[in-house]
Design a protein around this nucleic acid. Structure first.
Lengths: 174, 174
DNA sequence: CCGTTCATGTAAGGCGTTACATGATTCC
DNA sequence: GGAATCATGTAACGCCTTACATGAACGG
């Protein structure tokens, strides 16, 4: 799975500009995927050249022009190809956990500070996911699998919040 | 955090060969970090050139030669520099969750198969982490922060196993 | 006999990030 | 007046992966 596969998936439902795609990546997908503008724009250009998508330039008043991209038959085929390929194993990389592993080399207070900052981050993310779930449930816009997707994000975040809180307490009582 | 930082951390405690480092990455760190030989060996070479570590070649009977690396004062300094730098935010990327999000474009049975395969994978990983915890607790070799580290891995894995099981059941009853 | 373990390395390529560049409008 | 939003792009660089190359010994 790379940025191209994800963009093809998004364009199955409707057309998007690069700027709009980025917003979706930041809200719905942020739990398990991310891509910056430095990836999105060049990827869209390449996809257009490969004939997977077509571009339509929209003139706007008081705003910069927009490029709206639409998927082609070739793009559809490419997306099916992705879906039939083997699933890549997930990757998780955490600087915090690595530092925690080497925690004996820093002051206890520093470690606690690290954990508190992370806890705050996780709580924010959890709130975001729950708000997102609420929005979409109200809209009845969600498929069964999308609901599972967001549920996994929420439950994982809750677990992290809980374990981080417990860990901070246990370190403070040391 | 990159491979160099992690290797410097490992070498704080004792000297290692590249091959041994890889084994540690696969067992203890596999939950939140990974590096292949294609990263490890070139990184060790560069670190030696930069004066962070020194190499000692060990002749072995009936085995290939080993290069054992030891950290220098310069390396120590570099590691302290890493520990005092800002913590990078974690990254998580999951092909499975992305496909789940686009689940409406494939057969239900395919989705269930994806989830079952993932569940098996997570169960295996969980068993591995629990065995690891048991080993290290018996040895009393673990610091408080390392215990937190592994606890986070175990609790996260348990949550994943639970939610995946529930999701499979809910899809089967659809 | 065949697979696994031990052991080190190179080369090419993929995929991504950050920083830079531009510039109008709108909200506080 | 300054920050945020809207909007698109490029260039340099970082970091990692996969595949290839080599080869002995040991266990089943």
């Amino acid at each position: 799975m790379n940025a191209q596969d994800v963009i093809l998936g998004m364009l199955q439902k409707r057309s998007y500009s690069g700027y709009e795609l980025k917003h979706y990546f930041e809200s719905v997908f942020s739990f398990f995927f991310d891509a910056s503008f430095g990836t999105i724009y060049p990827t869209l250009s390449r996809m257009e050249q490969l004939g997977y998508i077509t571009k339509e330039s929209i003139q706007q008043d008081n705003r910069p022009n927009k490029n709206i991209y639409t998927i082609t038959d070739r793009g559809q085929e490419q997306f099916r190809l992705y879906l039939s390929s083997g699933i890549e194993k997930q990757t998780f990389r955490s600087d915090l956990l690595m530092r925690l592993y080497f925690g004996e080399f820093v002051e206890r207070d520093v470690v606690i500070k690290w954990l508190q900052d992370e806890l705050q981050e996780r709580e924010k993310k959890l709130a975001q996911l729950e708000a997102d779930k609420f929005c979409n449930e109200a809209d009845k816009n969600m498929t069964a699998t999308q609901r599972i997707c967001i549920q996994i994000g929420i439950e994982s975040s809750r677990t992290m919040v809980r374990v981080l809180s417990e860990s901070i307490t246990s370190l403070e009582n040391l």
